[in-house]
Design a protein around this nucleic acid. Sequence first.
DNA 1: CTGAAAGCGCTAACAC
DNA 2: GTGTTAGCGCTTTCAG
Lengths: 330, 330
Amino acid sequence: MKKLSMKDIAEYAGVSVATVSRVINGNGRFSEETRQKVNNIIEEYNYTPSNVARALRTQKMPCIAIIVPDITNEFFAKLVMLIEEKLMTLTYTTMICNTHESAAIEAKFIPMINALNISGLIYIAEGEGGNPVVRKDLPVVYIDRISNDVEENIFIASDNFLGGYLAGERLIKAGCRRSLFIMDNRNISAFIDRQKGFTKAHADYNIKFSEQLICCANGVDFEAGKQEIEWLINSGILFDGIFCVSDMLAFGAYGELTSRGFSVPEDVKIIGFDDISISQYALKPLTTIQHNTELIAKNAVSTILKLVCGETVATKNIIIPVSLIERSTT
Amino acid sequence: MKKLSMKDIAEYAGVSVATVSRVINGNGRFSEETRQKVNNIIEEYNYTPSNVARALRTQKMPCIAIIVPDITNEFFAKLVMLIEEKLMTLTYTTMICNTHESAAIEAKFIPMINALNISGLIYIAEGEGGNPVVRKDLPVVYIDRISNDVEENIFIASDNFLGGYLAGERLIKAGCRRSLFIMDNRNISAFIDRQKGFTKAHADYNIKFSEQLICCANGVDFEAGKQEIEWLINSGILFDGIFCVSDMLAFGAYGELTSRGFSVPEDVKIIGFDDISISQYALKPLTTIQHNTELIAKNAVSTILKLVCGETVATKNIIIPVSLIERSTT
DNA sequence: CTGAAAGCGCTAACAC
DNA sequence: GTGTTAGCGCTTTCAG
C-alpha cells in the first residue's frame, strides 16, 4: 500500500494538483463543488499531504524545536508537555532536544535544527557562557532562564523576584531572623532574581540579611542540599530559616536537618521552589513557590508562532506571576 | 546570510552537485583530491545538507518517533532521554509524542508521523484496546508494554515476571504471610506479568496467595495508593506486606499506613517498582524493583535501526533483567 | 572518475 | 475558477 501523493488525489478527483493544493490550504479560489469533490477523495483515501515536500517548497517545517536542560526534572517535563500539547493542536510538531545540562550536546543540536529547516526554537538555556549561535533568521523564544549577555532576546519566565520576595516575607512573618538562601554556583538568571527578591523582603521588613547567608550548594538536587546543610552545620553557622531554589534541594536540606535532630518547622523553617509533585505528597509536605506553568507554556507558544509568521512582538519580556503554597515546613 | 545549498558548494568547489553528493554520502567513486576539495569547502562554509530535501528524495526522514504515555513519569522520562541520546549520536532526530495516557491524542500523532515520513516508531503503548493502526510499512518497536492482541510485534521490556517473583520472595523471606498485590484496573501486560511472578513466588514457598489479595487501585499514583489502603483497611482486610506496581503507589500506601499509626517495616513491609529517584531519597527509602533502563534503551535503538535498514531481527522478544533494591521498607 | 538530468511531492506564479 | 509549470535541495541513474 504505497502512500498516495497529491497527484493521485488530483487524478481521482478529476482536477489538477494546483486545485487540490488550493483546497487543502484554503487559499486561492475554487468552487464549492470542487471543494467537496476533493475533500471527499481526500477523506476516502485517508490522504495526508507530505510535510516534507511542503517544507522543501516553503522552506519552513511545521515544527518547533525545544531545547531543555533535563527532561527528567519534573518542572521542565511539565513545561515541555504543555508546550507540545498546544503546538499539536495547531498541527505543529515538537522536537524535544534534551541537553543533559551539557553545552556540548546543546551545540550538536544546532546543525540538526538547521538541517531540518525547523521553524522556530524555544530555548531553556543554561546560564553559563552564553548560548550557541543559531541561524540569525531562526525565531527564538527563551524560557525560564536567559544568559545575561543578551538584551535583545524574547524572554518568558516566572516572576522570580516575586517568588524570592514571597518566600522571604513568609519566613520573616513566621519569625525567622537568620534565613539562608541556597542556590548553586551557576550564574542562572532565575536564581539571581530570586535572591534579589529575598533580599528585598528582608530590607522591607528591616531584617538584616548578610552576604554570608547566601550559600552555593554543589547543584540543586537532593544530594546537594544534604551536603550543603552538613557543611553549614559543621562550620557553625546559625540559622532558623532556609529558602532553596529548588524543591529537591529543600528536601535534601530537610533530610539532613531531621537526621541531626532538628525539627521542622519548629527549629528551622524551609521553603522550596517549583512545587513538584512530591512536595505535595511527601510525609512532610513542603512549603514552596509554584510556577504558573500553564501560562508560561501558553505565552511561549503564542509568541514563537507570532515570530514564525513574521509578526513582531510588542513586549520582549513576559513575566508570569508565581504563588506561595503554604504547607508543613513553615 | 542565506543558507547555502549543495549547488553553491558545488560551484565553489568547481565540481557538479552529483560529485558533492557522492562525497558527502561516501558512495559512488571520486578521487581523493576531489574529496579533499569538496570537504574543505563544506567545512569552510559550515554547510549542512538539508535533511528535508534528502527526505523528499529518499522517502525516509532520519527521524524516529517515540510515543510515550507520560513524560512526567520519571521512568519514561529517563527511558526517552536515553533513547534520544543514542539516536542523536547516530544522527537521527527523535520526535517525542506525549499521549497524556489518552488514546485520542495517540491517534492524532499517527497522521503526523505519516506526513513527516518518519523512519520508525518506538512505542510505549497503553494496555487498553489495542494500538492505533499505523502504516503497514512503518517499522515499530514496542517498549515496556504491549497490547495483548498482537503476537507478531517486536517487543522489548523488563522481566516483569522476575520482578514480581523477587518482590514476592523478599516479602516471604521477611516473614510476610499475607501480602497484597496492588495494581490498577488497566490490563497492562507489565502489571499482569508482575502478578504472575508474585504468585509463583508464593507457590514456590508454599505460602497461600488468594485472589482477594490482588487489589485494583484507581491509578498508579500517590493518591491512588493512599485511597486504596484507606479502602482496604476500612473493609477490614488483614495484611502484613504490600507489593505495588509503581513507586508512587507504594509511597501513597506508606503515607496512609503511617498516618494511621502503622509502622513500616515492622507492621507491614512495602516494595515498589521502578526505582524512581525519590525512592532513594525519601525519608523512608523504599525497597523497590529497578529496571535496567540503559539496556532497554540500547536494545530499542539497535532494533528499530535494524528494522529501518530493512534487516530482519531474529528475536521478536527481548526481556531485560531487573533487580531488587533493598532499602528501609522491608 | 565525473557531469547532466530526472524527479521526490508540494506551492505559487502565471496564464486562460 | 482552474490548469500549467517552474522550482525547493537533494539522490541517483545513465552517459561519457
